[in-house]
Design a protein around this nucleic acid. Structure first.
Length: 759
DNA sequence: CTAGGGTTAG
């Protein structure tokens, strides 16, 4: 027994589920050089060569194709015939190992055997070619076969259907009918599989009719296939109709229906089906769990998901990739990265899908460093990567504005053929745009065959970040002309572009016509954009009116936009109302306190300003540390306020002095998101002069050729003083300064900013 | 000879 186990352990995985008889115990030293009657085993004459054939089959079942080859030669030398049964096993092994080379050798031998090999053997050869993916050989054989059995038709039609070669599959099906060969359920099931797409719905219905006429309904597998075909075509009602009529329903039919519900955004129905399955004691397998977890993930229903996880644990399915991977994704979607990692670790054999689910989690939750680290180690270890992983990497590059890693990953993905059409390309558009390279973003966009809504939106949003409203609107027109329909996100980008450039009338028109002209229902995000547009432009009352009359309850963003406008345009009364409302909705919003503080400071209400600042200190608001960075020759230089760690610190500070920009007294009183608000006594002016973005700009000036723009990135919103600083520097040095803050790009040129001081 | 279900992304 132990030997057998050992032997099995050494078999290739693909073979481990093949049931083997005890042939393996026949030693390979069984000699062929002796004459049959010399065997100690008294083999009757009629069974001559039995032992050799048995041994051949044994070798074949162990996947030892090379030894098979050698043994065959030995058998040939001793004139021992190979039985058809042996050939059958050899062909099966070649098929399961996808080993076309040996398969062809076996086929050659069979051809040499005589003019009429048994039909069943030819079917095995056919099957071997199909499984090895060589359909042209398969077809050639099929056409030459003198005796085609029903099985031959099944094999070749299924192969075509499986490869998605619909026309070939259907042509053969029709040819078969012409020859009066009656199709069996297998053939219909294969055909239905290849018709599982909306564009083939009419054909699918016709095949369904043929199935009914042939009397094959009320067959579990058949009905399951029909059900699945309707699901994949998006006709859930038809699928339900078939499903409800099934007297006996297997797990596959249930799964198919659940997939349909989840795809149709009806995840609740999926979960209801799952509950029914549990109640009706249907056997739950890995497939059922994966779709159920997907539904839990879509609903972010961590309670239900947790219960499902419990069941998975009880059934001992946690270690399976097919369950573990969706489990990782479920926890990622519920923003529970800790459980996601734990689920990941419990899988015995994670695959590339598992890795991409995890990496996507890291990038979505903002664990960018971790994401890159894992990505690099996967690359080094030669683990299979996929296009999903690269999409996540592009997102990380966007967040870090890491053009260097972005372009490298782009090249890497091209080499591996892993830029996924649409998904990967759109992620790259965003990546290049957010790295300050609209030109490269546009190149990617231009090279796309058929950009879809998301790709157009990414490009429009790119122009919006950079404040190029006219290009953004232009692109929207081109998008519509090319027949791609804008969605809600597209309009957020369009309205943002308008808002950032003060195109009030245009914004109003787009908001008004969204629904009537484009069939996109406005959401609160669109109203917030409009409120922002009014507020920035100084139409504070219009902004307030919209807050009061829009068909949604105002959210934090609504009031924040109004408050921002009140600060720019110094409307204290309204600003106070907005600030109170905002802090009611989001007491943790650091920016809200800063805006409120600045509003009080601007009106000289120092008592109230100080009280805001005290509240901030007391609440110890968790906030991001402000930092700015610049990439010089591929390496990133990062600065925080008052940083003196850089090796060229002296040069940087003397450059700052040389720029000699003195801020006006009044603006010194204002707070920026970068200031250390936990210490209310700290002299603000000292901090201001050494804000991180100034350090980065100064470093950029001394480290780059004078004819190139200085491109600086910052994780927070640019403060008023530093914005003025940027304008000043672009004036006195004659250089273009580009700053990307958390909201958008600022292009400073000859003392002016592309944002027209509107940000 | 014999088919049918799932999980990752912009």
């Amino acid at each position: 027994m132990a030997i057998l186990q050992l032997l099995h352990a050494s078999l290739p995985d693909k073979l481990s589920n093949i049931k083997t008889a005890n042939y393996a115990q026949i030693p390979s030293w069984v000699s062929l050089s002796r004459k049959p009657n010399e065997f100690s085993l008294k083999a009757p004459q009629t069974q001559q060569g039995n032992l050799e054939n048995v041994h051949l089959i044994s070798l074949s079942k162990q996947g030892k194709l090379k030894e098979v080859q050698e043994f065959l030669q030995e058998m040939d030398r001793s004139n021992i015939p190979v039985t058809p049964q042996s050939y059958k096993h050899l062909l099966e092994t070649c098929a399961s190992l996808r080993c076309l080379r040996y398969g062809e050798l076996v086929h050659d031998r069979i051809k040499r055997l005589g003019k009429n090999p048994p039909a069943f053997l030819e079917n095995h050869v056919l099957q071997m070619y199909c499984e090895c993916g060589n359909l042209s050989n398969a077809r050639k054989l099929f056409d030459e076969m003198r005796e085609k059995t029903l099985g031959s038709w099944v094999i070749i039609i299924s192969a075509y259907a499986y490869e998605g070669l619909l026309e070939n599959a259907l042509a053969l099906y029709l040819a078969m009918r012409d020859l009066d060969v009656k199709a069996n359920p297998s053939i219909y099931i294969s055909l239905l599989k290849s018709l599982s797409h909306f564009s083939y719905l009419e054909l699918g219905k016709q095949v369904h009719c043929h199935v009914i006429k042939a009397g094959f309904t009320d067959n579990v597998s058949m009905d399951t296939a029909i059900c699945n075909m309707y699901v994949k075509c998006g006709l859930l009602e038809s699928a339900e109709w078939v499903f409800d009529l099934m007297r006996e329903k297997n797990a596959i039919a249930w799964t198919a229906m659940m997939v349909g519900y989840t795809q149709a955004d009806r995840a609740e129905d999926t979960l209801e089906f799952f509950r029914r399955m549990v109640r009706e004691c249907i056997e739950l397998d890995a497939f059922v769990f994966s779709i159920t977890l997907k539904a839990c993930a879509a609903l972010e229903d961590w309670k239900m998901g947790g219960q499902v996880h419990g069941l998975i644990f009880k059934l001992g399915l946690e270690s399976e990739v097919s369950v573990g991977t969706p489990l990782v994704d479920f926890y990622v979607k519920c923003r529970n990265l800790e459980s996601a990692s734990r689920a990941f670790e419990r899988m015995t054999e994670p695959n590339d899908v598992s890795w991409s689910a995890l990496l996507c989690g890291y990038s979505q939750i903002g664990e960018f460093e971790k994401c890159i680290k894992v990505f690099k180690s996967l690359r080094n270890e030669g683990v299979a990567l996929n296009e999903f992983i690269y999409t996540s990497i592009f997102q990380v590059c966007s967040a870090f504005a890491d053009l260097s890693l972005g372009t490298q990953s782009h090249g890497d993905a091209i080499k591996r053929g892993l830029i996924s059409y649409l998904y990967g390309e759109s992620a790259m558009i965003t990546m290049y745009a957010k790295c300050g390279r609209l030109d490269l973003a546009y190149q990617v966009f231009e090279l796309m065959d058929e950009p879809d809504t998301v790709a157009w939106t990414a490009m429009i949003a790119g122009y919006a970040y950079h404040g190029s409203a006219s290009e953004a609107l232009n692109l929207l027109n081109r998008m519509q002309a090319s027949g791609v329909r804008p969605n809600a996100v597209t309009f957020v980008a369009v309205l943002t572009a308008c808002s950032h450039t003060g195109l009030i009338e245009e914004a109003e028109q787009y908001l008004d016509s969204m629904n009537s002209k484009h069939g996109v229902e406005p959401t609160i995000d669109h109203y917030d954009c409009m409120i922002d547009a009014y507020a920035r432009a100084g139409f504070l009352n219009k902004a307030l009116d919209l807050i009061n009359t829009m068909p949604f309850e105002p959210d934090a963003m609504s009031w924040k936009s109004l408050l921002g406008g009140c600060t720019i345009h110094r409307n204290f009364e309204l600003g106070k109302i907005a600030a109170e409302k905002l802090l009611q909705l989001d007491p943790e919003d650091n920016a809200a306190y800063i805006l409120m503080f600045n509003l009080h400071a601007l009106s000289g209400r120092w008592g109230e300003a100080a009280s805001v600042r005290r509240t901030m200190a007391e609440r110890n608001l968790r906030k991001e540390i402000g930092c700015s960075w610049i990439t010089i020759k591929g390496s990133v230089h990062r600065f925080i306020v008052g940083d003196r760690h850089h090796p060229q610190t002296e040069e940087i500070y003397s450059k700052l002095q040389e720029l000699n920009f003195s801020d006006t007294i009044q603006e010194h009183a204002l707070l920026s998101e970068e200031d250390d608000t936990s210490n209310i006594l700290l002299e603000r002016k000292d901090q201001l002069l050494v804000h991180s973005e100034r350090l980065a700009i100064a470093f950029g000036l001394i480290s780059t050729p004078t004819n190139t723009p200085v491109v600086v990135f910052k994780n927070l919103r640019a403060c008023k003083d530093c914005h003025d600083f940027g304008k000043h520097v672009s004036m006195v040095t004659g250089r273009e300064i580009v700053v990307r803050d958390s909201n958008r790009f600022h292009h400073f040129k000859s003392g002016k900013c592309s944002c027209s001081d509107y940000w």
